[in-house]
């Protein structure tokens, strides 16, 4: 935590009180900014983005770090800065302003220091905005924003890792009744999973599932080939069933690990079937 965020004194002139009051505010450090850029660059490589200029600014919109990937058009470096600055000093993603203007609020373009183009996202740590990231030069404005989000999430992950997570038992029990995520961040997810019947065959390319059965029984097929598989998200395929593969009966107390990229299918389930899943993201 101390490596990435330092606490500085922020002077507030309170003349009425007579003495100057000082409030502490988290500030992004260069190391933190590097972490953000690295995450955006990794995402750019993962999705094969044709380019990308990535800028990180502090909470005042002041530039901290820029990296322009090979082949990205030159102006990208300055546009990414504009997006980042706008997201930081208005404390909102720039896509919001692009939409507001497109929806008819044209006079807004006259604001100072304002680049209302999708691709700027605030960086938040423990609920405070400490800066922003802007991306320009990827395949589309949408992809610009996706890379920016991947970058900003690197700090969110850090934020949650820095603090201890604690969930009360009754909340966890409540989550199991419906089957709900308990914790989700860029590195892992914990789900309180609940099933009343068979599921679809799934493959997720990034998440490894670590399963611990708490209640009920289920027949699970792993490996093999997914039938009628459709890509439903960037890293996820779902299909009707699995051809071949290995079949196991799971019961209370069992642990199973399904590595990322491995097809798996809850073929038969005795209701209620509750299981605790840790999904580790590659």
């Amino acid at each position: 935590m101390r490596n990435y965020i330092s606490v500085i004194g922020c002077l507030i002139a309170c003349t009425a009180i007579g003495t100057a009051q000082v409030a502490n505010k988290k500030t992004l450090t260069l190391d933190g900014a590097k972490k953000v850029v690295a995450a955006a660059v990794a995402e750019a490589k993962r999705v094969n983005a044709p380019g990308g200029a990535i800028a990180v600014v502090d909470d005042g919109g002041n530039l901290m770090l820029v990296e322009r990937l090979d082949g990205t058009f030159a102006a990208g470096a300055l546009i990414s800065l504009g997006k980042a600055r706008t997201a930081a000093i208005f404390k909102k993603p720039t896509s919001l302003f692009e939409k507001i203007i497109r929806d008819g609020r044209t006079p807004m373009v006259a604001l100072n220091d304002f680049t209302p183009l999708q691709g700027g996202v605030p960086i938040e740590v423990d609920g405070q905005i400490v800066g922003a990231i802007g991306v320009s030069g990827a395949s589309s404005a949408q992809q610009d924003e996706e890379l920016a989000i991947a970058g900003a999430n690197a700090m969110k992950t850090m934020g949650s890792m820095m603090g201890v997570e604690y969930l009360k038992g009754d909340k966890v029990m409540e989550a199991f009744k419906k089957g709900m995520p308990l914790i989700e961040n860029g590195q892992y997810k914990i789900h309180a999973s609940h099933r009343d019947g068979a599921g679809m065959a799934e493959v997720h390319s990034r998440d490894t599932d670590i399963i611990y059965v708490l209640e009920g029984t289920a027949t699970v097929v792993t490996g093999g080939t997914v039938i009628d598989g459709k890509t439903i998200a960037a890293d996820e395929i779902r299909g009707a069933s699995i051809d071949k593969g290995e079949t196991r009966k799971l019961a209370k107390g069992d642990v199973m690990v399904v590595p990322n990229g491995t097809p798996h299918w809850f073929k038969e389930v005795s209701s209620p079937f509750n299981y605790y899943v840790v999904k580790v993201t590659e």
Binding site: A55, L63, A74
Partner: peptide, 11 residues
């Protein structure tokens, strides 16, 4: 052309 490739502001 004078356009940034890398910029770093030290703490």
């Amino acid at each position: 052309g004078g356009y940034p490739i890398v910029l770093e502001r030290l703490n």
